[in-house]
């Protein structure tokens, strides 16, 4: 809980930092990555309640499944154990259209969820146990995958794929392979609207084989034990 509060305190200064960082890249013209304002700021500031979150999440489990385990087919990501900050960022980006998700939007838009419920769901999901992963890749390029991950990804996503809550870097370890593969493709091909520009830069030159290798490696990383929810 202390870490969570600490993360919140960091947010306002962080938002300013990101803005400055972004302005440096594109002469200030490009939209800021993950600008913390509006309902995103509100949901990050609100204190989430895991019990209320569990109730609000009932309307999501038709896709993300009970326990938020997602689908090994890759259609729906696992949400269990993800950092609350990341969940809030992704949900509000989906609502604002920065990250396009037409399938999910009608079940998570402003008619269905309040910013308070976004905060509630985030804290609930963060505390859920991460199930042993079923969605793995072919396993024939793991050496190459490790090399790429350590070189290009671990600075942000962490050596074990644990991510960094206060910087909005997602926990990726143990996510379904097919989902990871689709997202890395989206990121490379400019189809994930809210993708971090520094990440896009490192993934840009990847071949399809590289993406498969790194996604398979990540899918097999053992996710760390869940943080307590309250």
């Amino acid at each position: 809980m202390k870490a969570w509060l600490g993360a919140l305190l960091l947010l306002s200064s962080l938002a300013g930092g990101l803005r400055a960082q972004e302005a440096g890249h594109d002469g200030g013209a490009a939209p800021v990555w993950n600008e913390i304002k509006g309902e995103k700021l509100l949901a990050l500031k609100l204190r989430g309640d895991a019990a209320r979150g569990a109730e609000a999440f009932v309307g999501c489990q038709g896709c993300h499944k009970r326990g938020a385990t997602g689908s090994p087919s890759g259609a729906y990501p696992r949400l269990a154990g993800q950092h609350a900050t990341v969940l809030i960022e992704q949900m509000t980006d989906i609502r604002s259209g920065r990250r396009q998700n037409a399938k999910m939007l009608p079940f998570a838009d402003e008619h269905v969820l309040t910013p308070q419920e976004i905060a509630d769901i985030a804290i609930y999901l963060q505390g859920l146990p991460i199930p042993p992963n079923l969605g793995k890749g072919p396993g024939d390029k793991l050496e190459r995958g490790k090399e790429l991950f350590v070189r290009d990804c671990s600075t942000c996503h962490g050596e074990r794929g644990e991510g960094q809550a206060e910087k909005f870097y997602p926990l990726v370890a143990g996510q379904h392979f097919k989902y990871l593969l689709r997202e890395t493709e989206f990121i490379r091909d400019g189809r994930r609207g809210n993708a971090n520009p520094d990440m896009v830069r490192v993934i840009k030159p990847y071949t399809d084989d590289d993406l498969e290798a790194v996604a398979d490696y990540i899918a097999r990383l053992e996710a760390p034990a869940a943080a307590p929810s309250q």
Binding site: V58, Q61, G62, C63
Partner: peptide, 14 residues
């Protein structure tokens, strides 16, 4: 199970 292709959530979820 729903229908993942057309995005029908599982009825059982709700």
């Amino acid at each position: 199970d729903g229908n993942e292709l057309s995005g029908v959530p599982a009825c059982a979820g709700c």
